[in-house]
Design a binder for these strands. Structure first.
Lengths: 207, 207
DNA sequence: GTTTAAATATACCGATTGGTATATAATTAG
DNA sequence: CTAATTATATACCAATCGGTATATTTAAAC
């Protein structure tokens, strides 16, 4: 059997299988958590056997980490695409809130928000996974802070603003909204919060 | 053997055992999650056997629900105590943020924040537990909203304020701060957020 | 097309899972 | 103090857990 990707990007059959495993397994780990996901779940979902799975991943933990990285990568890629629409720092800030405005629908495909789920799941459990979560949280906050600093330099944002303070404040609101939206199955938390952040940008950040 | 509580409140030995189980098991379930907590963990921690445990709880799920309720009850009790310090609605609002200011230290005793942990853990997994989480979230938000409405009636808070909107906004910020404080093991999220909410009360709510 | 190497399937491992039937111990009621 | 009852301990269950050694199939290189 010959696959499109195989021809196009010169991927070996094994690499394709690895991608298939990750794509299939990522939302399962994300939705069920590490402990509640069994290797049987994985073989069943991928239609592969343990031999194939363990041929690509050393153990369950390595697979879980790879699955989390897969989810995060596709998420950050999507944010990046969204932000590339506009060049102005302050407009990019609005685009971040715009991304999270529809985050419920989007992240459902990933089996929920990977940051929220793995952050809670790995807390005091899995050191390697938790470290990855922290890295991504820092990365997102740094990105927001950099945008604010760029906005200050461009004269779009008030010079007296502390970039990291506001970045963390925005991230805190977003994380709370994501958690409550999922827990209450109510999108209005994300809608209201993104709207609120927009008005903060307009009223408190804008020069 | 005779226990203090036994004499004082006329609790049977069995009821005492049940309390002992819940007190021991509640933080374990909260910290590890439902799937990652085994009955062996429970028998080991309580120094009891399966016979004793299953004599008091029908199955693992019932025990997990009882453990969550135990944590929530002690948490709500603590908030209630804290709020009883003052009678003014707006001062009670400040006392809520004051409670969450030191929430990291307090909730560590419970094995983390029960709302956050069980909210994520039970999402798309355990219907009964998730329903309990939702009930508690609504209860907390209603409590905040009621305080704001009382403040409006008392002339302490601006009449144009939408109580539930602000209650949900405050809760969203708190949930985000709790999540990030735990995930990043950094208390400053809760400190900064409670400080920020205080200034919102002072600047946006106060008449 | 054949050989060689890699990828996948099969069958199995000991340990642990949640749960139960029954025996034993402790407590309560008379 | 005894009898009835309740609470706890013991021993066991089938099922599943994560993981592995080996056989078999498939793809890659020539």
């Amino acid at each position: 059997m010959v696959y499109f990707l195989y021809i196009c990007f010169m991927l070996t059959k094994a690499e394709l299988t690895k991608l298939h495993i990750l794509k299939t397994v990522a939302p399962i780990f994300n939705q069920n958590g590490y402990a509640a996901t069994s290797m049987s779940d994985i073989t069943l979902a991928t239609s592969l056997t343990k031999g194939a799975i363990y041929g690509h991943f050393e153990n369950k933990e390595e697979l879980a980490i790879a699955a989390f990285n897969y989810n995060v990568k596709s998420m950050l890629l999507r944010i990046g695409e969204h932000l590339s629409t506009n060049d102005s720092p302050i407009e990019k800030l609005y685009l971040i809130t715009d991304f999270y405005r529809n985050y419920y629908n989007y992240s459902k495909e990933l089996g929920g928000c990977p940051i929220t789920n793995v952050g809670v799941d790995a807390n005091n459990q899995n050191t390697a996974l938790l470290e990855r979560v922290r890295y991504v949280v820092r990365k997102i906050q740094d990105q927001i802070a950099t945008l604010i600093e760029d906005g200050i330099k461009a004269g779009e944002i008030n010079t007296e603003i502390n970039a990291m303070t506001f970045a963390k404040r925005i991230d805190t609101m977003l994380q709370g909204a994501i958690f409550l939206t999922y827990t209450m199955d109510d999108d209005s938390y994300l809608k209201e919060t993104t709207h609120h952040i927009d008005s903060i940008i307009s009223n408190e950040l804008k020069e």
